[in-house]
């Protein structure tokens, strides 16, 4: 599978947040989005996810154009900023609720996803009692539990301890190995180099460089 971002421009209230972006993303590769705060990394992730509409240009997932042939990529897992899970539900109940929307996976896969990020599937604590790191891990589990073809993780290692970072790296590696397109944004340059195969540098809504991670 391939994602094509073609001449994509997004203007919000007169400000150009994405400026004629052109990008091709391929299966089995992890792309690291690099850039300062407000450079357009998250906005580009939203564009690829179909969460925003272009002012001009388009995004194609395979041979289908977002907003024309389909509203959202058919198989996508997203972690963007701080996802709002339900406070009075456990981690498992929150994921079950989301998994039931598409009905692709059952209890076993949900529990596996929780374990993969280092959370206890049997933990009876409610989400509101979770630490920041646990909340982040749950967000990652929600993004990957259905084994989507596209995985988008915005700052996945924020607030996560060292052990958790190792697990996140493992998750990204596994997603790549099963042929998913993985997109990661991260402030930590070293971590990004380690996570990604290719680095896409964004500045002022433009792609200024695309190179292999060394």
């Amino acid at each position: 599978m391939e994602i094509i971002v073609n001449d994509y421009t997004k203007t919000i209230k007169g400000a150009t947040v994405l400026d004629h972006v052109n990008l091709k993303l391929h299966s089995g590769v992890c792309y690291g989005f690099k850039g300062k705060n407000g450079s357009g990394k998250t906005m580009l992730m939203r564009a690829i996810s179909g969460l925003i509409n272009p002012s001009s240009g388009y995004v194609k997932i395979g041979d289908k154009q977002l907003g024309k042939d389909l509203s959202f990529p058919e198989s996508i897992g997203i972690l963007l900023e701080n996802p709002a899970f339900l406070d009075n539900y456990t981690g498992y109940a929150n994921l079950k609720l989301l998994a039931d929307i598409q009905g692709k996976i059952k209890e076993k896969e949900i529990k596996e996803a929780l374990s993969a990020v280092g959370l206890d599937p049997e933990d009876k604590r409610k989400y509101k009692k979770y630490s920041l790191g646990m909340k982040q891990k749950l967000g990652i589990a929600a993004a990957v539990m259905e084994k989507p073809e596209i995985v988008i993780l915005d700052e996945p290692i924020n607030a996560i301890d060292e052990e958790g970072v190792v697990l996140v790296k493992k998750i990204i590696f596994e997603a790549k190995n099963r042929g998913a397109i993985v997109i990661v944004a991260c402030h930590d340059k070293e971590e990004l180099m380690e996570l990604a195969d290719e680095i896409v540098e964004i500045s002022a809504g433009k792609i200024v460089e695309k190179k292999e991670a060394v």
Binding site: S49, G50, L51, L70, S71, F72, P73, E74, I76, I78, L80, P83, A84, F85, L98, I101, Q102, A142
Partner: peptide
């Protein structure tokens, strides 16, 4: 505002 990035792509249709 808070949950659409979790749910909307799963619904596949706004």
């Amino acid at each position: 505002k808070e949950r659409s990035s979790l749910t909307i792509p799963r619904f596949q249709d706004k």
